[in-house]
Nucleic acid binder design. Sequence first.
DNA 1: CCAAGTAGGACAGTTACCGTCCTAGATGTG
DNA 2: CACATCTAGGACGGTAACTGTCCTACTTGG
Lengths: 321, 321
Amino acid sequence: MSTDTPARLLQLLSLLQTPREWPGGELADRLGVSRRTVRRDVDRLRELGYPVQATMGADGGYRLVAGKAMPPLVLDDEEAVAIAVGLRAGAGHAVEGVDEASVRALAKLEQVLPGRLRHRVATLQAATTPLTSGDGASIAPETLTVIASTIAGREGLRFAYRARDGAESRRRTEPYRLVSTERRWYLVAYDLDRDDWRTFRVDRVSDPFATGARFTPRELPTGDAAEFLRQSMQRRQDTYEFEVTFSAPAEVVAARLPAWLGTPQPVDEHSCRLRAAAGGPMEWLAVRLAMMDCEFTVHEPPGLVGYVRDLGGRLSRAAGA
Amino acid sequence: MSTDTPARLLQLLSLLQTPREWPGGELADRLGVSRRTVRRDVDRLRELGYPVQATMGADGGYRLVAGKAMPPLVLDDEEAVAIAVGLRAGAGHAVEGVDEASVRALAKLEQVLPGRLRHRVATLQAATTPLTSGDGASIAPETLTVIASTIAGREGLRFAYRARDGAESRRRTEPYRLVSTERRWYLVAYDLDRDDWRTFRVDRVSDPFATGARFTPRELPTGDAAEFLRQSMQRRQDTYEFEVTFSAPAEVVAARLPAWLGTPQPVDEHSCRLRAAAGGPMEWLAVRLAMMDCEFTVHEPPGLVGYVRDLGGRLSRAAGA
DNA sequence: CCAAGTAGGACAGTTACCGTCCTAGATGTG
DNA sequence: CACATCTAGGACGGTAACTGTCCTACTTGG
């Protein structure tokens, strides 16, 4: 309705993102301009790099197709809520390799999410259950997004931290990177009080907030945040090795397990063995194995064997054995 | 760098979405215009409804905050991939109430996703595991997005359908709505051959494609697609009732279960009972119960009891009991 | 108080934009 | 085959909008 050119272009972009064909006449009507102007606008979008495809002939029309760069996504309310909920649900147990970008996208979205939608996201979020099996290691999505924001904005970050021995402390940091490996989130940051680089487990962070103080990022001595994390993990020995034998062909098992857990080695035609290192909560691995839908045997570590035994006992009792 | 006004406005919008403060001078530099013009552009964005907040005084700057409507999201490559992967992973087992919007958002995103990113999404998607426990009821995300596109674009839809008795048939339909209830996806559509409204289970749909023929949506006699689905489900009796007793306070159980499964009723201070109806694969419910981390007893239905017993036995054997 | 930032009015030159005319090419239908 | 319906794009003139420069006013933190 507004007669402004840039506004009209944004509106056109939004219309074209609906997965259907738009005849020029209809667009002209909707935008309140002449057909010729629509053609010019389409031209302009193309010059901007958004590939508008036009099918010729009767029954033709315009539509936005895949191009070189991502066009700005124009979402309606429900779609925005769906993405927010989806990303938040995934934040705790996302796919290896996209976790950090996923949190960044969530932070970006939540920055501009209208208040009334925020409500709906929170409600729906409450209706879903965190997949973490009650070991208290769950992470509030807000924690991740606040941290991501401070990293992107180069702002100071303060939070309360509960160390491995249970001791509480308050930290003033310059956040550097979020890294997630093997079902756990870590923050690599420069600790202003310790005057050195540190890694923090995000599930032990509480009450994080941006101080507002901007800083220029220091250089990490190790270069890569993931590398730095790996080194400090080695010192702490936070992972464990496990070994399982499955009564199913290696291909079948491989298809049902996440690739990062490793590749099962065939023993014979009908069984295979998986030996790999895992981090994160052991319960998760146990449940994952339970979902495999084939016979298997856990050899190591003893803790995992114990947990699987407990789970088995509990289920047997539940069935009234 | 000097492009025309609308392009600059889009660029400005993208800069402001980074969660940080931008001083006017820096924006002027980046956009290649004078400081005054930046102020004018900011004004224009505000008039368009995008609330740009400015902090006054030294060390001030601009940033985009939550407003009345969603601004067009400007994503970088990694963020786009992250959202696509997240939505696809969630497509099979999403949160009640946002599923359809989620699929619509995914369709919208994939329509414009550049080819090189498509590759990355596919790769990462392969690395993750479908959560469906081997009953063959998994759904390819593509199937959902194709259907969603035809609904949005009012295009005819053809697909192959495997009926409950295993009979294969080809369908020509005018798609109306996607509905998901209790872990399953359904398509409500007008069947052009049967000349009547039908519901289809999406996990039995294969090889769907848009015919390209546009149509004007008919009116559904029942009015609401969800209502229509409910009625045809009642005829088929696709759900089952279950009853479980937990050895944990009702609040604790409620907090760990999805709300749509129902509310547990307290029996005494330390236990509670849940009686509700569920649909979808029974294995899913069994695994969900296993993750509850407390003792429980399954009373009904017999099938669920049997499945829990099997799972328990398998786990006990796995632990070498 | 000063420095550095936002906010916004006034003015003049330039530019870009828009609608109304055209004509040309593609495509499916009667 | 001709026709209707769509995209594609050149030409043109009047109007409107945009931009940079130069102002002043106000806010905030050191």
